[in-house]
Design a protein around this nucleic acid. Sequence first.
DNA 1: CGATATTTGATATGATGTATAACAATTATC
DNA 2: GATAATTGTTATACATCATATCAAATATCG
Lengths: 173, 173
Amino acid sequence: MTVSKTDAADSAKASRPTRKEPRNGGPEGAALQLGELSEHLGYALKRAQLKIFDDFLRCVAPLQLTPAQFSVLLLLEKNPGRNQTEIANTLGILRPNFVAMLDGLESRDLCARIRSANDRRSHILVVTDKGRAVLARAKKLVAAKHEARLNALLGPANRAALLAMLATIAREF
Amino acid sequence: MTVSKTDAADSAKASRPTRKEPRNGGPEGAALQLGELSEHLGYALKRAQLKIFDDFLRCVAPLQLTPAQFSVLLLLEKNPGRNQTEIANTLGILRPNFVAMLDGLESRDLCARIRSANDRRSHILVVTDKGRAVLARAKKLVAAKHEARLNALLGPANRAALLAMLATIAREF
DNA sequence: CGATATTTGATATGATGTATAACAATTATC
DNA sequence: GATAATTGTTATACATCATATCAAATATCG
């Protein structure tokens, strides 16, 4: 709906002794009412998604992996011998946009393109040893920091229910 | 994680009599395994969000309103007398980016900027009559088509639970 | 009061994500 | 063997998102 990566909600910088804002008496200057907005799933969905991605980025920052790159490596590891079109399609990436993304991963030696012997048009994608190592570390960081934090916030049962509903929407909506 | 607005999953164009792909016998050419990806909340969240936004766009297409524009009009209606900074911050929009957005809405006479008398730096934002009319029609379309479809897919109780969990993540994560 | 700092809306600019068209090389189809 | 389709790629356009900076207006404080 809107929603950028920014703070929103007018986060008061915490440290600022002198200001006028503490006029808590009047109804003026109060926090804005979200109103019906808080009942719209799309709005909550977008804001939650930004938070999740932001946290993912922080948790996996030492490995310099974006959520998109992580998903590519995960998919490559699970599905060896596939070409660019197959991987891109599965992840909902357009082939033209997948090229630069692979260039980035390949230049860091996390994956490699191998010309197929059967069909010399296509590139078979493989995770390199270094890619596998980075992916393993990423999985641990994500599990230990990111997903663990979600479990702490929602509880395992709720987290599972949430995941199931999101998957349903993604699949059948 | 990845995920664009595109079809993904290699949607077979439905109408194409001649192709090679029906080699359903071998394990080759089968659908890819998502593997651990399907256990990552961020991935499901992103894909669900894209679906929801896409459906929102279609449902409200006759009014030519994006989710972001809809959220702005909703917030303006609920919170009269606010300036650009307050509205933008609440929605998580950066002020510089909010300018062009307001230009668009104002050029269509859906809202208006009014110089404040108290503080002549700020613009008080108001929904115009036309904006209120468009917003009313948008609400009906969204409720009748978009949210109704979600209720049909998840059921009202699950939909409410989903919304609550997403709001929790957006608020406390 | 007057100097300095802050706020507001705005502009310019860049980075990133997403989408389409078109191309050469290769393969499939008939 | 001519035509069509596929694969990876390039170019390009557009939207989204982010930062720095500015002028005008206001606030703060010596």
